[in-house]
Write a protein that binds this DNA or RNA. Structure first.
Lengths: 225, 225
DNA sequence: AATCTTTTAATTGTCGACAATTTAAATTGT
DNA sequence: ACAATTTAAATTGTCGACAATTAAAAGATT
């Protein structure tokens, strides 16, 4: 929630954010046709700004536009999600390696405290805490991306892939048994960062993401090919 | 040239491509203000489609928009270019590793023939052949990305980073002395692909990109910090 | 009854005009 | 002459209406 800036500048920006939210949460089904007039009516604005919003969402690949045939919500099939996680592994691994040399001691300490918070949240609510799939989990990953000091990486991972990732979360049945392993892995990563061991941090992050992906495909190898 | 589809669908798409070309080639200077009315006039269209084009270009990060203050061409400073090459190293390395297991023998053979063509071109024109910075070089890299079979990777590397990379090329003074080393490295990469050695192919590609980056910063460590 | 053609409706693409905001210029005051 | 304030120009943001294209429905023909 803290990552995407809910800026309320132009109407196009507002529409873009509202649409992005609706798409990510599944409120707008995947593959659904997006009618310009209908959406403009619902958002209380003209079609101009809404079209600009659609063009922007097309840029960050949340919708797919076909000339003279309108825009549709993207469909996250198995292949797409698989590709997504493969890229995350490479990019977040790289972020981790860079973060090990770039993050300040204060930031690493702060990261550690973030994990403390997560641990308490899990213990309190006990059952429903599907940490591996939670939003807090994303915060952890994002903080490391910020620590890489690579702005282009922040863009790609933060603004674009992040949305698709959240979309995966909302369509995936959350399995709670990966809660403590994920937190444990996070702790190890922070430890590697504190020791300034970039190579180890990268490897741990890559394994962590691989584990998350395995967890996803294991918990739903019933549907789709 | 074969990568970006010069599709001529809606006016917004046309404007988007024309603007992208002007930006990449440096015809529109970095940081330059993009006046909507003026551009719409020049392209012979209304401001509506042009605004949509700007929104699209904002999505692929060729222009930077500020609400109520217009759009400007992005500026590729040292840090940005450095970040770009760091990401390329991670992503194209990954593409290479995947391509080693995914490309068909025919595709690898075709890649080898592409290098033969490049070699002849270099020998013919002799001097001006700054291969390391040429467009043909990009074709080689793109073919490997296609071979990775990761569509999201093709998107990121092909549509977005590719534009920024070409932009770097146009602003960088081309140095011809890196011609034969680059071709040589390409040959080694193809060899690794033919042997289905993904790890080696990745390492070779990473070094190749590192070399390209070093070549750039060495040939112009006069300007900017 | 099924298929092809024609007509109709719906949706997207485009333009021009107006409102709101920002930037530049001119004016005024010290 | 310099600074702050006010005024004017330019630019962006927004809307509504019309044209072009596509999708759907009605009708005709075998």
């Amino acid at each position: 929630m803290s990552i995407i800036t809910p800026k309320q500048g132009t109407l196009a920006d507002i529409a873009s954010h509202r649409l992005a939210h609706s798409i990510v949460t599944g409120e707008l089904a995947q593959g659904q046709k997006l009618n310009e007039a209908e959406l403009a009516e619902r958002f209380g604005m003209g079609r101009g700004p809404l079209r600009e919003a659609l063009r922007h969402l097309e840029g960050i690949h949340l919708v797919k536009r076909i000339p003279n045939a309108g825009a549709r919500v993207v469909v996250l099939d198995y292949k797409t999600r698989s590709d997504l996680y493969a890229i995350r592994e490479a990019l977040e691994g790289m972020a981790c390696r860079l973060a090990a040399t770039q993050m300040t001691p204060e930031e690493i300490e702060q990261l550690s405290r973030l994990l403390d918070t997560h641990e308490k949240q899990i213990q309190q609510q006990g059952n429903g805490g599907c940490y591996g799939q939670s939003e807090g989990n994303l915060d952890f990953h994002y903080q490391i991306v910020l620590g890489s000091r690579n702005e282009m990486l922040m863009r790609i991972l933060g603004s674009e892939q992040y949305q698709l990732l959240r979309m995966c979360r909302f369509q995936t049945s959350r399995n709670a048994q990966r809660t403590s392993p994920a937190l444990q892995q996070h702790r190890h990563i922070v430890e590697a960062l504190a020791q300034r061991d970039g190579e180890l941090a990268e490897m741990l992050m890559r394994r962590h993401i691989q584990g998350a992906w395995r967890s996803i495909i294991e918990s739903q190898y019933k549907e789709e090919a």
